[in-house]
Design a protein around this nucleic acid. Structure first.
Lengths: 195, 195, 195, 195
DNA sequence: AATGAATGAGCATTCATTCAT
DNA sequence: TATGAATGAATGCTCATTCAT
């Protein structure tokens, strides 16, 4: 019960952080804004987080862990690298497409700081890229994917393409579904644009 | 002469802005830092720019204008859409690859703010994306590119792929040449990953 | 029994206060520090004291009451003012010399606030000074002490001399016994420095 | 001119610091209070001092330097140790007696922090005590003062006696002249209280 | 009586911007 | 034009105190 309350309050602050950071940007958000949005006093934030930075940090950590966990599970369901890439694309776009605010924080706010980028890219982000690379490599080894392409470059391309879909979706004024783009991306990525 | 001095000083502040923002991040940079790096007094910055934001703004505007101008010129040299995409990729990577600090500001700092992203994407950035899209469309019209792909999606993929190359290059601890990746990107984008 | 527990807890908090205030200074000490050192919850402190100030207040009150009580008892054992001054000096230095932490709070922390000084000097401290003054007066009346000296000035001198012994002892990096200085002080105070 | 303005502003902040710290105590004073009392903006304080601590520090440094300088000069005017002690006493009391606010800061605020006490006592304060000790020693060597008293103890007594005069004067509700007490102090210190 | 989670007022410090010179 | 001293609004964080349990 008490345990639950603690988790609830932490969760509330985290959600409030996502919301506020998405709306106003990390640097323009005040801790007081987050506290108010979470329905707690300013000081309470510091009972659950070390400071403003730690909130952003925690948003990233939690989401990325879920993300990667689900990604791995998804991959195990299939042996076909092409299928696996399709799964990754779907998951990537459906996940971020389902939570616009989280997507904003991921696409915009997390990159606003070399500090964060360096700290994070080295860890969780690199892991995500590795998953894509391994999938491509196994496709090459199986003779399904061409061998004259560096897997790491292809992986970055794939990730970059998905990433750009999300960023554009966020910045777009017209609402549209993000997930369906997964198919398009995979189609071009695997088949090429040439006729 | 006086004219020249004015241009020189503005240029100096702009270069100093790129340098300082790249090093410490936009939000962590002080106007005083930029002024010192430019060799002028704090107040002088305000004779050439409206404020801190305007410096970042101007960095973007100037670079983007050059970028787009050169892109257009490059495209006119060829009639082949595939060649044209290759030219764009080379230009994109060689330009940013030639000025790491500018690249950092573009990839990292400009995105740290929804405000900037929204303001800029709507203008110059959209134009850049349009150029890519038009190229792809003309390829489709000429029957060189497959027609079952939405040109705007393909354009975003292409841009996203290039963008990711740059971001990774910036964050990488090992130095390597960025431009050569243009060929790889185009190869996969046009030919597809499938064997 | 319950009575005893209450006294014990109050005592524990008081001792913890002395310890913590001596170590970190009153203004730099947190109520939470005192609570932790006393082995009670933060809120418990407020069941025994009105607030942080009241802890310091109570430290002073209790120690001063003991101090004065013992002083009076000591004085009654002798009729000779010179002996009596010697007793006061010994008591003063042995008492504070026996409890370095208490001494630190008395010499340093209690003085860090005009508010406290004013509030306290008017009460218990003045009483202590009175005792010394009365002793000196009775010496003058008995013809043992010279009459051309204002007793209150002499009393302040005596107190100031003892006080300085304690302050120096606290700040000294080398440990030494404080009490033995009582004899020196009395010797000079009564006999004068002149040869 | 500019030079003068700078010195004036620093001086104004220093005086304001003495005033405010004396009135409300160091820990209860806000930098904003000092700034307002000095007639400058809050931020201006930081153009002249590193922070709140540095103001207190500087008050002490400046006053102590003057104090010691004047003390040395005074001592050179006489060869008689008894005269010299009288001079020190007069200077001590007249100096602090002439500036009640400065005296409050010296007697009360500077002692409110073990940190300050330790840092300062080791330096300037020790020097002051040395001057007194040397004077006493020379008196002993000249056979004017008794030799069976440790000079350092006598010096502390003398300083402590003067110090107590100042503290009592500050805390007293009735105004009276401080300097005249110098004679009394010296009389007792040299001649002893005994009849 | 005891707890300790929650509160929110309070404050030192920073820094973008202005303006008298 | 250029300066840089001065400004003062803005804010992350602390911690004494409260109160529901």
């Amino acid at each position: 019960m008490a345990r639950n309350n603690v988790a609830d309050k932490r969760e509330a602050i985290l959600r409030a952080g996502i919301k506020v950071f998405a709306e106003k940007g990390f640097f323009n958000s005040k801790v007081a804004d987050v506290a108010k949005a979470a329905g707690v006093a300013d000081g309470t934030v510091y009972l659950y987080f070390k400071g403003k930075d730690d909130i952003l940090h925690s948003i990233f950590d939690r989401a990325m862990a879920e993300f990667i966990g689900e990604g791995r599970r998804e991959l195990e369901r299939s042996d076909d690298p092409a299928d696996q890439l399709a799964k990754i694309a779907e998951l990537h776009l459906s996940r971020l497409g389902a939570d616009r605010e989280l997507a904003v924080v991921f696409q915009i706010e997390l990159r606003g700081s070399t500090k964060f980028m360096e700290a994070f890219s080295a860890a969780a982000f690199a892991e995500y890229l590795q998953i894509i690379r391994k999938t491509i490599e196994s496709g090459q080894n199986a003779g399904l994917f061409r061998g004259d392409v560096k897997p790491i470059v292809a992986a970055k391309m794939f990730y970059g393409a998905l990433d750009e879909m999300v960023t554009n979706w966020i910045l777009s004024k017209k609402p549209y579904a993000l997930e369906p783009l997964a198919g398009e991306v995979v189609k071009v990525f695997l088949g090429g644009l040439k006729a």
